[in-house]
Simulated assay, not measured.
Amino acid sequence: MTNGTAGPEEATPVEQLSSLILSSTGSLPPDPSPLFLCNFLLCTSVLTKLDLPLALRKHSRYWSLRGELLGPSALLLHAPSPLAMLLEGSPFLVAPAGARNSLGQRLIYARPRFLDWTVYSTASAVACYWFVFERLLLEDPIVAERGIVAVDNLTGVGLQNMNPAFTCAAVRSISVMPIRWEGAYRVVNNNDLFHSLFFYVNKFLPRRLLAKMDVLGSKHERLLEVLPEEAIPEALGGTLKVEGDAI
């Protein structure tokens, strides 16, 4: 990425963004990690041209909503993480290692049937949601630039898994994540409950996400349009083993 002709001692793009954050807020970024800051540049750049003001706005919106939902804290990547252990027992959202399409877009795999509200609180589920994305952004630097492919498997989902407060927080979170939403969003194994709820939820989803949404029902073979067989979970007709799918 470039922003005009760079001199030998010119600040790097990440340093420029950090300086902009400091001048606009009076303090350093909540997490000044160059790797994490770079995500805001990657998801807002066009080809090799930077858009520093847009990256600054994206960064501001990210930490503003994050603070509202999670409180003031740094990234949720402390080891051993209680969030990682919670997700291990009730894995409603996972990013299987190495599962991506030919464009380098990573698979995000959601299984709302694991949202057991005797195990999760609204706050802990929201924190786990952010944890999965933050870990993905730090582990896979090209995610911000190339985007993701999301697959939502609604097998076994019922009213007992529904939580309007969590759904609202998750939908709001989507709009501020430093990720290009370039890949498709596929919903599979949906039932009548999904159609009833979607009528309400779609009013709050970003238009660009709705435009890429495809409700497949049981037509799992159409996942091959966006993912290779080795990146499609076995439960959906592919060869990718995802822990918890047999439950």
Rank of each mutant, 00 (worst) to 15 (best):
A55Y: 03
Y109C: 09
L93A: 15
C128N: 02
K58P: 04
Y129R: 02
S81Y: 09
H59L: 14
A84P: 00
P112F: 07
L115V: 03
L70A: 05
A97F: 06
A74N: 11
Y120H: 12
P91Q: 09
C128L: 01
L83I: 06
L56E: 14
P53S: 10
E68C: 08
G71T: 05
I108F: 15
A99M: 09
H78G: 12
P82N: 02
L93P: 06
S124W: 00
A79K: 01
L65S: 08
T118P: 02
M85Q: 09
L103Q: 15
R111Y: 08
S64T: 13
K49E: 15
R100N: 11
K49C: 10
N101G: 14
P82F: 01
D116S: 04
S90M: 08
A110I: 07
S102H: 15
A74L: 09
L69Q: 13
S64G: 10
T48S: 14
Q105A: 12
V119P: 01
A95M: 10
Y62R: 03
K58D: 02
F114V: 07
V94Y: 03
P96C: 03
H78L: 08
L107R: 03
V119R: 02
V94I: 05
A74Y: 05
L52P: 11
L115A: 03
A99E: 13
A97D: 14
P80A: 06
Q105I: 13
R61I: 00
A99D: 12
W63Y: 12
A79S: 07
D51F: 05
K58S: 13
L83C: 04
K49T: 14
P82T: 01
